[in-house]
Design a binder for these strands. Sequence first.
DNA 1: CTGAAAGCGCTAACAG
DNA 2: CTGTTAGCGCTTTCAG
Lengths: 336, 336
Amino acid sequence: MATISDVARAAGVSPATVSRVFNGGRVTPERVERVRKAASDLGFSPNRVARSLRMQRASVIGLLVPDIENPFFTSLARGVEDAAQRTNLSVVLCNTDDDVEKERRYLDIALAEQMAGVIVAAASRKHTDLSALAARGMPVVAVDRRPRAAAVDAVTVDNQLGGEEATAHLLDGGYERVACITGPAGASTSEDRLAGYRAAMRDAGVSEESTRPYVRYADYRVDGGYAATRELLALPSPPDAVFVTNSLMTVGALQALRESGIEPPDVGVLSFGDVPWASLVRPPLTTVQLPSYDMGASAAALLQERLAGSGKPLQTVVLRTALQPRESTRGPAARD
Amino acid sequence: MATISDVARAAGVSPATVSRVFNGGRVTPERVERVRKAASDLGFSPNRVARSLRMQRASVIGLLVPDIENPFFTSLARGVEDAAQRTNLSVVLCNTDDDVEKERRYLDIALAEQMAGVIVAAASRKHTDLSALAARGMPVVAVDRRPRAAAVDAVTVDNQLGGEEATAHLLDGGYERVACITGPAGASTSEDRLAGYRAAMRDAGVSEESTRPYVRYADYRVDGGYAATRELLALPSPPDAVFVTNSLMTVGALQALRESGIEPPDVGVLSFGDVPWASLVRPPLTTVQLPSYDMGASAAALLQERLAGSGKPLQTVVLRTALQPRESTRGPAARD
DNA sequence: CTGAAAGCGCTAACAG
DNA sequence: CTGTTAGCGCTTTCAG
């Protein structure tokens, strides 16, 4: 592979000049021309590793997500990628599996690889520790989930409001025993959506105690949604509607329902997080739509601002969800 | 950030010794101990950029996929990741968008970043050019799609056989005018699945000419499947079954069918590529299941073999698909 | 505007 | 087994 000195020699200039040509230093047009020609003749392309070492910063940003198989995060990842590309940043996608240990390992790698910055959908609100990055001055933006104690920029949605609207919609539709299957305890999205659910129940005059049996924590995976729904169905007085806080768990919930011979909207089903196939499921699924792509794009924009040296105070961008009513919550009485 | 020399100084040894401790050279236990302690006191972790520069090889492999939002590729990515992790390799996920130009750019980056190797689901069978990597001696393994002229290890499935079985299943079910919506012309998966379709049609005694109007090339996206299905439905003698060669396009096909008031299995629908929600769609979808995770894992294993310096001749691992019959292909007559 | 020279942090000979 | 030394390819003072 040709190096910068090879090019310099071929063009009859110094390596420094070649570097300047490629990095926007002042060089006479005539020499620029000579360097460009030599570079293309030799098929030269700058060694990014050497550059990173010298600059103490790579042109790579890390994106840590809990589950790459979750469509929400792939869409978010695209948002990040598209935005990053415009500044010639590459994106490294890391799957933390909702495992704080694995996440810590990736954060260490981000440090060791001298990545320019990190966008992280934290595995845990409590235990995700971003302090090492902060200490090294590496810009971080939290997306979707926001670790409790971290002083970082963040992009979130109003999960509580979304959960509240969803639950209210179920209640308005005539359902009475509304259950909630939420994500891992400790994840901010789980807790916030659940808080929204609780607020809506409270507003509807349902007491805290009577709500409690209908709340289940699961793991944001298909199997978790399935298991939780089975439990709910086994209750002495099973729910007549269920608010599921992510789309994967909704798949599991629908499976469990079907196995018991129950079909929405007899039991109302509402999924937090839209899915491409929402309208294909019979009946079409009511969902809370999340601006996943935009969240990724915003996060990347925020990070790039910091990279450019913005000294602004920390900011949190809160995006809104949108309820998309479909048949699965038409109401228990609507069936003839 | 602490460097190797800081640790050396603190431990009273030379930098080389510290390096040996971290890379399995021979060092007396007593010194190993001292180095370890100094390193942990200082919070030292080796600078991977410097190491990559020195070694002329990073401990990162690139994974190039055409579409990160396609569940098939995310599952494949997980397979790669899980396998890579066992050798302490990180995986960089790159989205080529089925764009040869974008792919070329990522390939250049792989080179410039001195990645250890690359796993690529090629954007095009014809135009994807892996020669630059080969020239630099960078190991490459092709996965899913195999660029025509490249001398690389590969992991594929038997797409033609899968397509043949799928089509035969439709024909066996009593469908007569079986259409095929395949992916981009030039992608090996598109062509092979289509070839399987053609073979099965031929076997069933359907002439080449009468088959032709029922073949559509699309883009492996939802919209492409939708548009192709609309076209098919507008035919003077529309098909009574459609074999769709990926799951995303199947979503589009189902949408188009619904809009026309048609439901499977009246028109049979068979998707190449399983999806988590296959059984939730009404009626449940017959699919050809792809061993996506295993393909990723095999590809990573192959790459690691090369990285370890295996001199074996090039190999291609061919995995098998599995037909999963469900209601959507129960047959036109089965409806009462 | 240009070139010489000094390193970024690490590993791989090579002596000892 | 251990230390010394010499770079990997690039950017950036600092003189000129």
